[in-house]
Every structure is written in structure tokens, then in C-alpha cells.
Design a protein around this nucleic acid. Structure first.
Lengths: 184, 184
DNA sequence: TCGATCATGTAATTGGTTACATGATTGC
DNA sequence: GCAATCATGTAACCAATTACATGATCGA
């Protein structure tokens, strides 16, 4: 989903300034995307030029004038089409996967350490996401709450998947271990 | 993992040309990353300048001269450090998640259709990945095979997770359904 | 008085992709 | 005779980030 569709999506509900938009998805969208002013303002300008949104300027004293953007009918149609358009296939491009690929170059201890640290980080994210449950429940609509649950499940799936890798690492084809097995 | 570390990782085993490198990860790395010449050649040049690799030129007749790159001791150290460096936290930035966030703007039928099509695409990827199992088993080392299994599990986790969303969509708070429930 | 909030925007940089340019050799 | 493989590279472009620039007002 490109920046344009995301901005349109938020503007479907309310007219907003670029500043408001940034805040809006810093709150509810933070988990999957973080957009900066450097991409928002140019995008808004382009969308206005293309007739997807209109601008009303509110003159202000101290601060720069507020530019409130409102979605047009064209914009609404465009957004709804983009929502129904085929999803690009998602690649499981995990940062961990690339490391694992080269794990043969690390010592068994280093492998375990890297993997375990990563698992720790994931569990921390999980805990953090769980802790915001009340806020999400209070503000999200039904589908946004499904998003939240989907995200939580993704994280626990990832944790489980990683744990299985760690288990496999433990079963190191290790001379010492084999010896011990015979001994006991 | 940046392009530099990936290239170094492949050069750890063999000296190679840019062309070889592209082939190497078109085969084994395809699942998580696709790099183009437009990024490989400049990267190699930069790495040579930084002393991570050295170049031997093999004069050729027809084709452009082969430039075989070999990793240096500095390069090896750099690579091993990057392998042990902390992993950047991975965001579950799913293309589907962003759609779901705005599902309130679609009709129940459109929602189900979008979600189900996506599930279909994922199952297809799964089948395709399963079908290359023999080739992977033949060429991958132990850790690369763990990668493969990790990837497969990620896909089935994703499929299961999506199915749960679809189930939740079925339980549409729908007047018709409620009426039917009372009737039966 | 100091930091946060409101509010806009640009410039430099990053990290890539795609398309273009060249051209011999080998196998079908 | 035509496509694929070998082999290099550049130029244009894209989508985004980060840092910079400006400046008032309000609450602790």
C-alpha cells in the first residue's frame, strides 16, 4: 500500500492537515509504517494537483498557515479502487533469515547468542504490543482491532518459529554430545 | 542485512565476479532478496576501494574482461562482525495488514474476496516453495536448510493467521444472520 | 526558562530499480 | 537464424529518510 492510499484512507473520515495526518498514523499505524513529513507534504501536493484532494488554507498568526486537505469524489473512488486492487505478494523478508543463511560462519555459541537475542527482542515487542491493548480497544474499529490481533498472532508465530530454529541449533551435530549420549 | 554483507557472505566461500554473484543469489537467495547489477557493481567497486575485497582482471576476447573479486582479511573480519551485530527489529509490515486497517470502507463481499484472494496467493507460494525442496536439500548447508524450513513455517503461519481473520469476517455482525439465528 | 506542541517545508542523501548500451560464443 | 549465456557498466529515475530552517504559544 503506497503512501497515497494511506493518506486517502485517513482523509476518508476527516479533513486534515499534513501535521494531523502524521500524528494520526503515528498513533494507529505505527506498528506497520512510519511516514515522515519529507514524504507526506510532497505527496499531498501531488495529490492536490491530481484532483484527489482539495486544500483550504486557514490563515494563522504565529505558526505557518494550516492547510486542511479534504478528499474529493475522485479521491474516494481512487481509494476504494486501490483497496480492492490485487495485493502484491508478500515476501517473508525477515532480517533474521538472512543471518541464518550465513550461520555456518559463526561458532555454535555465537549462533545461539544471536538467535536468542533476537527471540528476546521479539518477545519484548510482543509484551509491548500487548500492553497497548486497552488503547487499541478504545479507539479501533472492528477491522482495526482485527489488525491488532493479526499483529499479535504474527509475533507469537514468529517467536515460535524462531524457537524451533533455536532448538535445531541445540541439536548441534557435536562430537561431544554424541559421546555423552553413548555414555549415559 | 545490507548488500555489502550479503556479497561478502558469498565471497567467503569463493572468489567470484559480479555476474557470478548475481547468479548465486538468484538461486539460493531469491526467496528473500533480489539484487540487480545496478546495485552489485557499484557496491563491489566501493568495497574494493575500502579494502574489503581485491580484484583480479582476466583478459577476455569477446566478452568484457572478467573481474574476479576475492575477500581480504579485513573483509572477513567485517563480515563476521556484521553477522554478530544486533539484528534490527523486524516489523511485521504485511501488505495485507494495511488493507485490513481500512476494511471498514469495503462491502462485506469485497472484504471476503480480497482476503480470500490473498490467502490463495499465499497457498500458491507455499506450494511453490514446497516443490523446490529437492533442489534445496541437494545444495543447502545445514543452516540454509533451516532457512528453508523457517520460510515454509512462516508461510503456513501466515496462512493460518489470515484464515482466522477470514473466519472473523464471516462472523459479520449482520442483521440477516441474527434474524436467521433466531429463526432456527 | 525550557521543552512540548503546533505547523510548514526543502535539500541532501540513501539505496535501490529499470532500462539502456555493447558484443562474442554456444546450442537448438 | 535466434535465443540464451557470458560479462561489464552507466544513466535516469523512484521512494523514502534525515537533517535543517523557521517561529509562535503554552504549561510546568
Amino acid at each position: 500500500m503506497d503512501i497515497q492510499s494511506i493518506l486517502l484512507g485517513f482523509l476518508m473520515r476527516n479533513s486534515m492537515t499534513g501535521y494531523d495526518l502524521k500524528k494520526a498514523f503515528s498513533i494507529s499505524f505505527a506498528f506497520f509504517s512510519g511516514l515522515s513529513y519529507g514524504s507526506i507534504y510532497p505527496a499531498l501536493r501531488k495529490m492536490e494537483k491530481n484532483g484527489l484532494i482539495t486544500k483550504q488554507v486557514e490563515i494563522q498568526d504565529g505558526a505557518p498557515n494550516r492547510k486542511v486537505y479534504t478528499i474529493t469524489e475522485t479521491g474516494r473512488t481512487e481509494f476504494l479502487n486501490s483497496l480492492k486492487s490485487p495485493l502484491s505478494p508478500e515476501q517473508p523478508k525477515s532480517t533474521f533469515l538472512m543471518r541464518l543463511f550465513f550461520f555456518g560462519h559463526l561458532s555454535p555459541q555465537d549462533r545461539k547468542s544471536v538467535a536468542q537475542k533476537h527471540l528476546g527482542a521479539i518477545k519484548q515487542m510482543q509484551a509491548q504490543l500487548q500492553s497497548v491493548q486497552p488503547q487499541v480497544a478504545a479507539h479501533a474499529d472492528r477491522f482495526q482491532y482485527l489488525c491488532y490481533e493479526f499483529g499479535l498472532r504474527s509475533l507469537s508465530d514468529l517467536a515460535r518459529n524462531l524457537s524451533q530454529v533455536i532448538d535445531a541449533l541445540e541439536e548441534e551435530p557435536n562430537v561431544q554430545n554424541q559421546f555423552e549420549k553413548i555414555q549415559t
